[in-house]
Design a protein around this nucleic acid. Structure first.
Lengths: 134, 134
DNA sequence: ATTTTTTTTGTAACGGTTACAAATTTAGAA
DNA sequence: TTCTAAATTTGTAACCGTTACAAAAAAAAT
């Protein structure tokens, strides 16, 4: 029994071939893929996979807490199979997205009475690789 | 001479009627409007304003540092005329977006060699008003 | 005023996402 | 296993926010 199958069943989601393939992909590829990246990659092994199913599955996984959807910029959504607390930074030159750790306790001064549940932190700048090429 | 005009000229941007109207709207309305909200609001005073101009202007203002484009969620972009450092939180129930202050120094442990320039912090949860209605 | 450049406008195109109905797959019962 | 009902997947078409583009308008320069 694969890890993906267990994770889905734990949440009462039927472990179909498509869902397991997408979840396995996200957990194996920590490169913050776009929908199209995932689609292209899975299409080899699963030629019948439709974009509709992929969109539905990504929405399902996100709302089940098995993936994060990152909206660093308005023009593309990236997905992350690592749902542990961490920040994301994007290089303005190469467009690459990288993880970075967050402090144990991030003291956010939310508005009075606001009940916080989750946080996304996005940073922009220049990655080491691109900085060294300047 | 209006504030909006000065701000535009300082950055070498021609202060046309449309640009001044959009900038003035953003600085007077701190409700994190969407494109459509801005369009509807300005349409009364300026019936000829086209969506194309609005999109172009918002992009121009954002890249000039006169406005922030907030991509809290993938399905809508919101704009903010307050470009000072602050975080944003969104209520999952009513969809409202609120500001909150950030600590003077936010210690982010960016990847080795990554040159950080800017940060966006988005929090989700339940606003006071919605929490009180439960 | 006239010319040149810049900006705005409206339409059409574009592209990512979703709606929908038919086909397929899955789970469970017989 | 076979059958049946329910859930899922698929492909097409529609949808909608955004952008491209050329003509019209406005602004600046001559």
């Amino acid at each position: 029994m694969t890890e993906a199958k267990i994770l889905l069943e734990e949440r009462g989601i039927r472990p179909t071939q498509q869902r397991m393939a997408v979840l396995r992909y996200l957990r194996d590829n920590r490169n913050h893929p776009t929908v199209d990246t995932i689609y292209s990659s899975l299409h080899d092994r699963m030629p019948s996979l439709s974009r509709t199913t992929l969109y539905n599955t990504l929405r399902l996984l996100s709302s089940a807490g098995l993936a994060l959807s990152l909206t660093i910029e308005g023009d593309e959504i990236r997905f992350d199979g690592d749902t542990s607390d961490h920040g994301h930074c994007k290089c303005r030159r190469c467009g690459g997205v990288f993880d970075f750790p967050l402090p144990e306790t991030l003291p956010l001064d939310l508005p009075d009475g606001f009940l916080g549940e989750s946080v996304h932190i996005y940073a922009w700048g220049t990655c080491r690789r691109c900085a060294s090429l300047s």
